[in-house]
Each structure stands twice: as C-alpha cells, then as structure tokens.
Design a protein around this nucleic acid. Structure first.
Length: 748
RNA sequence: GCCGGGGUGGUGUAGCCAGGAGAGCACGCGCGGCUUCGGACCGCGUUGUCGCGGGUUCAAAUCCCGCCCCCGGCGCCA
C-alpha cells in the first residue's frame, strides 16, 4: 500500500503537472497551474482557475471568456485521468475536482497510521542549518506578555522548520552592553542587598527604582536651568506691561494688574523659594497668562501683546517639563508604595553624584573589559537569565545558545565590522567624533540598498530632485563620540556571527518597532559585501500585546510579569479541573491545570497574525470554548477516551471503504490538509495559519464525534474503521499541538 | 513632516502579496439537542455601505491614485 507524508500535496503536484502539459499541448501556452481547496465544499474538493487564466489571454468580453474557459475545461476533462479523481467538472470558469473517497480515504489513513509522528514531515530542509533568534529579552526585569508572544512564535517556527527537515539552532541574544543593563548594575551596586527570591523579579525592582530615581533627578535639574530663562523673559515682560498699562482695554486691566503683581513676587522669590514650590507658583501664573491670552485673542489685540507671546513661548517649554515632572512624581509615589525600602535607599545613594556620568563610565569600562566591572555585569545578567530560564521552561522552550553581546565586542568582531565599513568608504568620523554609516550615499549608489529601505527608483528620483535629503532613511551612528558602540552596530556583527556558524538562513523574531534597525542591519551586510547573508536574513516581526487594564512601562515600574499571568491562568484552570474531577489526586489536578493554562496562553498568542496588535483579554484567553487552547486539548482528550474504553486495542487494519458518511469524509479531508498547512505556515513564517487549522480540525472532529458512534457502531467492521480514524485524528492533532507547543493531555 | 503596519457584522478575526463562485470562522445574542463513546460538545437562527472617494478590469475586500482615523519608527535608546 502506497503511503506519503503528504498525500494531498503529492496528488496536487501530479495533476497540476498533467494539466499544465495538456494546456501546452492544446494551446501552446505555458501557465502555472495551481489547485487548492475549494472555498465551498459544494463545488468539490479541489479547484483551479487555470481555465479562466488561459481564456483571459484568448478573449476579451465576459461571455467569451467564460465560454472559452468552459471549452478549455472540457479539453482538460477529456484528457485528465487519475485514480484518485472521481469527477472533474468545469463550472463557470473553475475546474472542480471531486476526489474518489473510497481510494483517497484509505491512502490518507494508511499514510497517517504508518508514518505517525512523521506524517506531514515533508523533508524540505534536507538538514540545511537554520537559526532562529528569539526572546532575546534584555536581562533587566522579568519577562512580560510581549516576550511571551515572541517566545511562542519563535518556538513554533523552530519546531515547524525542524519538522520539515531543517537543522534548527535556537539562539537567545543577551543584550548586556546596553545602557539599560548599565543602569541596573548602577542601582544594584548602590544598594546593599543580596539577591533573593526569583532573580528576574528581584532585579526588575532595582531596575525600575533606579530609572525612576535618576529620571526625577534629571528633570529637576532641567527645570532648575529653566529658571534663568524665565527670569529674563519675565523681567522684560514686566517692564513692558508696566510702561504700557494704559494701552490695554479696561476689561483686561484688572487681569494684567494681577499678573504684574504675581510676576513681581515670583521674581523676588526667585532665589529663596525651593524649586518645587517655585514651580507650582509659576504654574499658576502660567495658567493666568493663558487665560488672558484667550481674552486677547477674542479682542484681536495680539500685536500689542508681542511681549506676552515671547513669555508664552519660553513658558510653554517649561510647562511641558512640569507636566512630565508631575507624571513622574506620580510614578515615584507608586514606587514608594510598592518598594519603599529599595526606592528610598537608591534615591539617597545617587543624590550626590551625576548618575548619567557614572553609568556612561560603567559602560565604557565594561566595553573595555575591566575585570571588576565585568564580574558585576556578568553576575547580574546571569542571575536574571536564571529567572528567565525558569519562566520559559514552563512554556516548553529550551534555548541552544545564549550569545552574549559583550563576547562579540571583546572578540573584536564588532570592531572589524566598523573597520571594514570605514575601509570600504561607507562610514567615517563626523565633526563630533562619532562614526557614521552613510546609508544616504549608499542608497543613491546601490539600488539593493534602496530596495531594503522600500525605495523604488521613482520615489528615489523624486526625493533627489527635491533635494530634501532628510526624507531619505537616516544614516546610522555606529560608534558614539566616546568610542562605545551602539546596539545596531553590534547586531550587524551578531548577524555575521550567526551565519558563520553555518546557518543558511537566519530568522530574527523581533518586535515591529525595530523594523528600521533590522533594515539597517540587512543593508550593512550588503555594504560589507555579504549579499548572501543579507538575503537570507529574515526579520520575523510581531506586534504588541496590549493589556487593556494596565498602562505598562518597565522604566516606570509598571509591568505585569508573565509569571503573574501564568499564575492567574493556572488558578482559573484549576477551578475548572476541580469542578469536573473532584476526586482525582491533587498533583494531577495541578498538572492538568498547568497544561491547560499554558495551552490557553499560547493559543491566545498564536492564533492571530503576528503583524497584528493583540489585546490580551482574560475572558477570551481562558474561555474554554471554540477558538481557544483548551478546546483543542479537549477534542484530543475525548478521542483518547474512546480508545481507552476500547482498551487501546486497535485493529491492525480495517476496511476504510466503510467510512462513507459526510462527517467521516470531512474529517479525513481535514486530516489530509495538515501537511500542506505545515508547509504554508513555515514558509510564510506564520504559526497563526497552523493554529487556525488546528481549531478547524478539532471542530470537524467534534462534529464527527457527535454523529458517528465509534464503540457502538452498528457493525464490528465499521467500529474498527472508526477506531483507526480516531487514532489517525489523534496522531495529526498531536503533531499539530506539538508544533504549536501546546501541551497534549490524555485526560483533562 | 516622512516611512512602515493596520481599519472587514455588537466584539475578535480569515481572505489581500499571486483579482473571479451568495466575504469564511469564532465570540455574543435567540431557539433547540444528554436513558447512547466526556455538555470544556453539537444543530438551527441572527448580524456586514469589507474606513471614505475616485480609477483600472468582462470581474475589485483584493490592483492603482487621493483622503480620513489608529498604532509604531525616524543619527549617538534598545
């Protein structure tokens, strides 16, 4: 008996070739022939529009096209023969095929039952190496739901490619050289506290507290520097107003008088008043000025108030700062409530120094490889990574390589990249001493570069003609004026590193907000003469996950960790499990609840297109109905339950010709779609395609389950055939769930 | 401002790149179905100016042009 990991795909390829040949013979036209599943099963199982396509070339009006297509269809029908085709009919320009289910069913089921976990595993990769870089979260605070989306997409892609015969390497980029880690290290060294609890949570708090304390300080300094400007412009305005008081209409004079007094007081108190009080007072005056301005606008006396316009301009900047300051004060109050001890201590310790300078120095030393600094940085990052590891292993993820950004720098690879770009004439020092990569020049000289930045020649011409060069994508700072490198620079080196390891293809699962940076990396590879790398570097981008009930910002100490979300999901699932199975052992309840929670979260993150923003909504995530993780697990558990009742005694073979009901045929049809779906999901790098399919498969199975009794089938032979069908469903479902990384439960 | 990505029933989405059959699926809502393999199920019904306006075409949710709204990015953050 013939078996195939992809029966449907093989069949489609065979008949497509044949049809292509028939058209060529009859009309001398070379066309691409594609058969796909019909939109509506009433029309048959497979369909192609090849007749319309050919007819379009031969006729003009609608009537002609359709009748021509019909003729072409008839020619094809008369010549196309295949043992799996029951009927082939041209209809309204389409070419519809109905399969001979008596043969097709047996072919599909035999393939599934004999290949089992290899069903669908078409060997496209042939052991070619491919690298998936994902998660790569900065080691500064716990993973949140956005990282989870990244992790789940990356893992699903890794599994898909592995399944299709690629050798996959899973990489995590440890971004330990950024400013953010430096801030964390800075705060940690100030704080006299031993790491405790889950390390990523411990350091997350320190990171947030440090950011908040530093930011507040910085804003206060900025505001203080505004004072001088304010003083100047207020003095001038005051002079003018006092000299020209008579010019203003009587209805305004009261207001003006009040304002003059207020401004006078403000100027007198300039030295004495503490900054905060002074600012609050200033704010009141500003709102008074704005009030008067409204009246002035009404009276159209603007020209007389030029001086106020000037004051307003200076004040507008300050007002913005003040608003920012107030929002940060709110953030500070939150931090004081959540982590009073840590926050107060950090704030106290940084009071007498310039945090930004210290952080910059830390970064410089780390990049230079200073032993003492190095050991702190490494320790902190390693501890946070330990926390990450705990979380992602719950999601069933195991990383092959953790690549430290600092290693890349110390190995000299990053410097090499910069050096080569300079040598090739694409980068040079600017007047401030920073090294700039001149993409704007490159775009004009090399259309490949332009293409990477989405510029076609017409657009480019237009921009160049208008001489507005700042409409072009920005140049890239490779090295700061202090000699340290930037993230994108290091990422260029990292990309090279990944390819040098033998990968022919590199997938970077990175957020949509980094699209420009990823284009820059790709373009830089081109400029380095690594065209092949550039073309095989793929940015798998995904959008944000929004938690509608929370405003998130790690720098502000506002975040919801993945661990918390996981706990909540597990709690909800536990209640459901206990309700249904009050008598099973406690640890079994917990085990099932955990699997359900993971399935629910993963499915919620996988089911929609990665490029779309997800709003994470509990009622949807943990709904145990269709289009949710537990729905899939449930279908599998019910199937397993049938086999359990049959004592897991499966017949070695059965008469699949007996499976003739609509529900059975539908189920087998869906099973046979699996391999094609896997290929599509992998090639388009969209696990959502597989998630949607899996949901449909579960749904189709449920309908079969409802209508076709297995154990109580009317005949023993039918029972045997259905038992094997159930087993085939379990195999495909298991394969699909494994690829998605959703845990499979025999009972739930 | 410029560059990307989105806008499809009350809600969430598929389809768009490669134009063709009453725009598919799910939630919600309403009604119905357990003496039968697990009701975390199934069936039936309900809901759409496919953001707006033009154009191309025998045929447009899909391609082209203009506009509106939301999100993100735009040289020393990552």
């Amino acid at each position: 008996m013939k078996v195939s990991p992809n029966p449907l795909g093989d069949f489609i390829n065979e008949i497509s070739e044949k049809v292509k040949q028939i058209i060529k013979d009859a009309y001398g036209i070379d066309v691409e022939v594609k058969f796909g599943p019909t939109k509506d099963r009433r029309f048959g199982d497979l369909t192609s529009m090849v007749c319309l396509k050919v007819a379009r070339n031969l006729s003009k009006t609608k009537k002609e096209i359709v009748s021509k297509a019909q003729k072409i269809g008839n020619v094809i029908v008369s010549k196309l023969k295949h043992e799996l085709i029951e009927k082939i009919t041209p209809e309204r320009g389409f070419l519809n095929i109905r399969l001979d289910y008596s043969r097709y069913n047996a072919y599909v089921l035999q393939s599934i039952l004999s290949l089992r976990e290899k069903f669908g595993a078409v060997n496209l990769g042939k052991n070619v190496k491919i690298c998936v870089e994902y998660i790569s979260a900065n080691p500064i605070h716990p993973l949140h739901i956005g990282h989870a989306r990244n992790a789940v997409i990356g893992e699903a892609l890794a599994r898909l490619y592995e399944f299709l015969g690629y050798k996959v390497k899973r990489r995590f980029y440890v971004d330990d050289m950024g400013k953010q880690v430096a801030y964390l290290v800075y705060g940690y060294t100030k704080l006299n506290k031993k790491p405790a609890g889950k390390y990523d949570h411990f350091f997350g708090v320190i990171y947030s507290c440090t950011c908040i304390a530093v930011k507040i300080r910085k804003i206060e300094e900025e505001i203080a520097s505004f004072k001088m400007k304010i003083k100047e412009s207020f003095s001038k305005a005051l002079e003018y107003l006092q000299a020209n008081l008579n010019k203003f209409s009587s209805e305004l004079s009261d207001d003006i008088f009040t304002m003059i007094n207020a401004m006078r007081t403000l100027l007198i108190s300039y030295e004495r008043m503490p900054t905060i009080d002074w600012m609050l007072y200033l704010k009141r005056i500003v709102s008074k000025i704005n009030e008067i301005w409204k009246k002035v606008e009404k009276n159209k006396k603007k020209e007389e108030f030029k001086i106020i316009t000037e004051v307003r301009r200076v004040v507008a900047n300050l007002t913005k700062k003040l608003e920012e300051y107030e929002s940060w004060l709110e953030v500070e109050r939150e931090a004081l409530l959540k982590w009073p001890g840590i926050y107060i201590e950090i704030k106290k310790k940084i009071a007498d120094e310039d945090p930004e300078a210290v952080v910059q120095e830390l970064m410089r030393k780390y990049e230079a490889g200073d032993q003492k600094v190095k050991s702190v940085f490494r320790t902190v990052c390693e501890l946070v990574l330990q926390g990450f590891l705990e979380t992602i292993s719950k999601l069933g993820i195991k990383i092959d390589e953790y690549d430290w950004e600092s290693d890349l720098v110390w190995s000299g690879l990053v410097n090499d990249v910069v050096k080569q770009l300079i040598e090739k004439g694409w980068a040079c020092k600017d007047e401030t001493g920073a090294i700039i990569l001149d993409f704007r020049k490159a775009i004009q000289l090399d259309e490949n570069i332009a293409r990477i930045f989405n510029l076609d020649s017409a657009k480019l011409k237009k921009i160049l003609a208008s001489r507005q060069l700042d409409l072009l994508p920005p140049n890239l700072v490779l090295v700061r004026k202090d000699g340290t490198t930037l993230y994108v620079t290091r990422d260029i080196a990292y990309s090279i590193y990944k390819f040098r390891d033998g990968s022919e293809k590199v997938l970077n699962v990175i957020g949509a907000d980094q699209k420009l940076a990823q284009q820059q990396v790709k373009a830089a590879l081109y400029l380095l003469g690594l065209k092949n790398y550039a073309e095989n570097l793929h940015h798998v981008l995904y959008e944000l996950v929004i938690l509608p009930w929370a405003k998130l910002s790690a720098r502000r100490g506002r975040y919801i960790t993945l661990d918390e979300i996981f706990e909540e999901a597990r709690g909800k699932a536990y209640i459901e499990v206990s309700k249904r199975w009050p008598n099973i052992p406690e640890e079994e309840k917990v085990r099932r609840a955990e699997a359900i929670a993971i399935g629910a979260i993963k499915y919620a993150l996988l089911y929609s297109d990665p490029e779309k923003v997800i709003t994470f909504d509990w009622s949807r995530v943990l709904s145990f109905e269709e289009n949710a993780g537990p729905f899939l697990q449930y279908a599998y558990a019910r199937a397993t339950s049938i086999l359990e009742k049959a004592g897991f005694n499966l017949p070695s073979e059965a008469d699949f010709f007996l499976l003739t009901s609509k529900e059975e045929k539908e189920l087998i049809w869906h099973l046979s779609l699996f391999p094609e779906i896997v290929i599509k999901a992998a090639m388009e790098m969209k696990p959502s395609i597989l998630a949607e399919y899996t949901n449909n498969l579960a749904k189709t199975y449920n309908i079969f389950y409802e209508r076709c009794p297995v154990l109580a089938a009317e005949k023993e032979e039918l029972k045997n055939a259905r038992l094997l069908l159930v087993e085939a469903f379990r195999i495909v479902m298991r394969n699909a769930l494994n690829l998605l990384g959703i845990p499979v439960l025999e009972k739930m």
